[in-house]
């Protein structure tokens, strides 16, 4: 019964949604201090290439590769973050845009390492590696009534789901902590925040590096889910796509980019005829949202309204349905 319900097609789509959600979170973090980073596609590429190269050339376990990719993206985040902090909003956005492109050009030209535009293929696949591992341990997915490929994609989906939920949980917690309040203060008014004794350099670099790490992490996952990457995957268009998750969904609360990534990944899949006009629609969404609702679809008010509704329901039924957000 279970076996028939688990269709790798749906799991595949779900996996891409989860990766996009993580990317949406990555841009949200930097935006929560009022900085716009357009380098997240580049950081994603750093994470993806680092992890792919380490696992391909040194046979390291995937998890080590992913961690290394995440960390390296974070290091680049700090390196780029510290000097750029002297710059104001628009200038920062442009430097990050330039940085993303430089990263891409390096991937294209560093042929001995990255194979240039041809890309890296045969990257260890998260699900297939896991399948081999459990088979070595003497476990056969058929015990659960699963085909091999069903097991592979179910495993990927569950891992990504767990990871995504923990990332969201972590940043929701951080938002309510000292760090989160500092971020909010900086976003509202940098000078006022500074005069209140908040170390804005520290917090801005922190936010920038966190965003870079999360993007690098998503990139590393992307590499091991798709098993193939090329520089074109991390170009300007990817940066814009990530930006749209936040613009459409909203950047005030973490649920905004999460919703944006979810909706904008599902939409072209469900409405196949739309996929041809995908980028035109993206463009229109940005223009309209900026003019009409610059804070994005989901803002604090909507969230409060939903909370109110669910808490009322909770009183009635005594169960939480916050997952519906």
């Amino acid at each position: 019964m279970l076996a028939e319900l688990i269709n790798p097609y749906y799991l595949q789509v779900a996996s891409f949604i989860l990766i996009n959600i993580i990317l949406g979170v990555s841009i949200y973090i930097t935006l929560s201090t009022g900085q716009l980073s357009l380098a997240n596609a580049g950081f994603m590429g750093i994470g993806a290439y680092t992890s792919a190269l380490l696992t391909l050339n040194f046979d390291l376990p995937i998890i080590v590769g992913i961690m290394a990719g995440t960390l390296l993206a974070g290091v680049f985040g700090i390196l780029i973050g510290i000097p750029t902090l002297r710059l104001q909003g628009v200038y920062l956005a442009i430097v990050t845009l330039g940085f993303g492109e430089v990263i891409r050009v390096i991937f294209v030209n560093w042929e001995s390492m990255t194979k240039g535009a041809v890309g890296l293929s045969g990257i260890p696949h998260m699900g297939r590696e896991l399948l081999n591992t459990v088979k070595d341990l003497g476990f056969d997915p058929k015990v659960l009534g699963l085909q091999n490929n069903q097991f592979v994609f179910l495993a990927i989906f569950l891992i990504l789901l767990a990871v995504t939920v923990s990332i969201i949980a972590f940043f929701r917690r951080q938002n309510r902590s000292r760090v989160g309040r500092a971020f909010a203060a900086i976003k509202l008014d940098e000078k006022a925040a500074e005069s209140m004794g908040i170390n804005i350099t520290y917090y801005k670099v922190l936010a920038f590096a966190q965003g870079a790490m999360v993007a690098g992490f998503a990139g590393a996952l992307f590499a091991h889910v798709l098993a193939y990457i090329s520089p074109a995957d991390f170009a300007y268009h990817r940066a814009v796509e990530i930006l749209i998750f936040a613009v459409f969904g909203g950047s005030e609360v973490i649920w905004g980019p999460v919703f944006g990534a979810l909706f904008l990944t599902v939409m072209p899949e469900v409405l196949r005829f739309i996929s041809e006009y995908r980028y035109m629609i993206y463009g229109l969404i940005i223009i309209i949202m900026m003019a009409v609702r610059p804070q994005g679809l989901i803002d604090v008010n909507i969230l409060n309204w939903v909370k109110l509704k669910t808490s009322k329901r909770r009183q009635k039924h005594g169960t939480s349905s916050q997952k519906s957000m």
């Binding site: 909003g89 956005a93 035109m280 463009g283 229109l284 940005i286 223009i287 900026m290």
Partner: peptide, 25 residues
């Protein structure tokens, strides 16, 4: 975007990125 309260200074940049994507496609 011009006379709107509480619009971040990033808004016009993002908005013109939208226009560029729309026009290209």
């Amino acid at each position: 975007l011009r006379n709107k309260q509480g619009v971040s200074h990033l808004a016009p940049l993002i908005s013109t990125i939208g226009v560029s994507i729309l026009l290209e496609n």
